[in-house]
Amino acid sequence: MEWRHDGSRLVVPVTVYPPLTGTTFEGVAGNALIDTGSTTTGVTGRIAEELGLQSIGKRLVSTVGGERQIDRYIFRIGLDGRAADNDAPTFPYIFEDVVGFELLDSFSFDVLLGMDILRQCELLIAPGNRVRQRFGV
């Protein structure tokens, strides 16, 4: 998958799916901020609510704004495998279930992709604001 970033942050389209416990493949599309400083992936409360995710408890999380107790959820992340915007649609690459946290709905993105997902990818940031991400490698 290749795209261009805006020079200040890396945002990529994703689909969030419920945990693999049934036969549903319905997900919620959103934009994800790639955050190599986060160990864990998070989704907004809106996404959790749309998917009907149930909290599996709270956890103390350190954020830029300080420490807080935040709900945790189990979900899956899907990344589109297209190499460019004009490529034909492909099936998404869906990662295994992750235990993630709830993001505040006030962010300008729906998902924060942390190292629990990113360590399964190869990420290249190239001159000219180009980004290439390969997964399943």
Results as ranks from 00 to 15, higher is better:
A29G: 01
S55R: 00
G136E: 11
F95C: 01
F109D: 05
M115Q: 11
Q69K: 07
G45V: 06
A32I: 03
E102V: 00
P19I: 00
G7F: 03
L53E: 01
G78C: 09
D35C: 00
S38C: 06
S8A: 14
E122W: 08
Q120W: 04
L10K: 00
Q69A: 10
Q69R: 11
E96P: 10
R119H: 14
F75A: 09
V28W: 12
R132N: 05
I94A: 06
N129Y: 10
V61P: 05
F75M: 13
V98R: 04
D97C: 05
F75H: 12
G65L: 14
A88M: 09
A126F: 08
V43I: 14
I94K: 03
K58S: 13
I117M: 08
L20E: 15
I56W: 02
Q120M: 09
T15D: 05
S55F: 03
L124K: 13
C121A: 13
L124D: 14
C121L: 05
V43A: 05
R132A: 07
I47V: 15
A32C: 01
G22H: 04
R72Q: 15
A84W: 13
G52W: 07
R46W: 12
V14D: 00
P13R: 02
D105I: 04
T21V: 14
V11H: 07
R46Q: 15
E50I: 04
V111Q: 00
T24E: 15
L10G: 02
D80F: 09
G66Y: 08
T15G: 05
I125H: 09
T63C: 09
N129C: 09
R9S: 14
N129M: 10
G30L: 02
